[in-house]
Design a binder for these strands. Structure first.
Lengths: 211, 211
DNA sequence: AAAAAAATCTACCGATCAGTAAAAGGTGGT
DNA sequence: ACCACCTTTTACTGATCGGTAGATTTTTTT
């Protein structure tokens, strides 16, 4: 066993624990939110002590930012891996469905929308911001294509569509349906997607029933 | 001046201060959220000291619950005062528009959706819960009427419509449009309403363009 | 196997916040 | 003008949390 492989083994173990920390933080953020999640929570969940946690991330802000960055990267990867034959609208549907399923599995924290403090912290992060901009640009491109194809309303500005689309990924209706509704996950996802793109209004029924 | 009027004058002053406390709390909740809002914040905002604040409300939980109860009462009053000639769908539109305008003016905290802790606290409050149930029942009745009139989709369960409708009143897209969009308040409200009832999809355009 | 090095944990610090006790200041009656 | 009563405030407590120093254990090297 060479020195190099020893080092890389150590590094690998370290990375593995770091990944476990990020996973635990993601879960805790999704369930408790930023303010109520404590660093002791994270350490206990992972099974390490707080100082060990601080060997990985030098502050709570950095830890949480890293979680959000990883989430953005996963989203960008997901978009890049989508089948090329998908129509623009289907790409948006597919991504939103994926986000909802992660949510229902208890693993999608949507911090930026919750607290202005957290949003400000993230917008100060030099690794977070470019990723948001890239995701934004990618999605806006897809929205534009979908508009061209007549799959999205052309009378709405792009930012209205985009922000409304983002907002659906953290729509509290999902939680309420899971808590109080009698629907299973598949039905919740189907209905949320339908509401997002077709709205609540009765006239959409007309449009849907026409081929 | 009789004893009675003296007492009522005192009481009136007390009620006035209490109302100011509730107003301040509403503003602070809307801007900072439950966790970040401190009782010192509230006291300072009103211009009284913390112990005086505790003469009115015996805990932070009670204060916040009272704010939410007042908000629910205002909503119920608003619904009761709507013109009788409004169609069911127009009643829903009108209420949502009103909520959005309060939001844009900086005065609508939407706590139940933010933190499970806060939601649990509210569901334990014996004055809050009945009001939520009443609002729920009222709105479900309107939804049912709208469905009968063909103004809302009949293929969606009532709770899907209701929860999606509630969720729109705290849709983060509003904040993002105000922050990053170049739209004025009226345009934001119009677009949010349109997205809520007509969706983002292109087929809705067809439906809308048909008389 | 023993010493050195590194990682981990126990125990703590300072700051913040909900909530309170007791002092300070007003208010009204006589 | 004085006194009793009520309100407000200053100044505190206990608890929690982010972050850290130093003891302890484990691992690595020779």
């Amino acid at each position: 066993m060479s020195i190099l492989s020893k080092l890389s083994f150590k590094d690998q173990a370290f990375q593995l624990r770091e990944s476990a920390v990020l996973d635990a933080t993601t879960r805790l953020l999704a369930s408790k939110g930023f303010d109520l999640m404590t660093m002791d929570d994270v350490a206990n969940e992972v099974g390490i002590s707080k100082p060990s946690l601080y060997k990985h991330f030098k502050s709570k802000e950095e830890l949480v930012s890293e979680v959000m960055i990883r989430l953005l990267d996963a989203t960008l990867d997901y978009l890049a891996a989508q089948p090329a034959e998908l129509s623009p609208l289907d790409r948006l549907r597919d991504l939103l469905e994926s986000a909802m399923r992660v949510r229902l599995a208890g693993g999608l924290p949507f911090l930026p929308s919750t607290s202005p403090q957290v949003r400000e912290m993230l917008t100060r992060n030099l690794r977070y911001v470019p990723r948001v901009l890239k995701l934004n640009k990618t999605l806006e491109m897809i929205v534009e294509e979908a508009k061209q194809a007549g799959e999205l309303r052309r009378d709405l500005p792009n930012d209205v569509i985009l922000f409304s689309y983002y907002a659906r990924s953290c729509d509290p209706a999902v939680e309420y349906l899971r808590l109080y509704g009698k629907l299973d996950d598949d039905a919740i996802v189907a209905h949320m997607l339908s509401v997002c793109f077709d709205g609540l209004g009765g006239r959409a029924e007309l449009a849907r029933s026409q081929p």
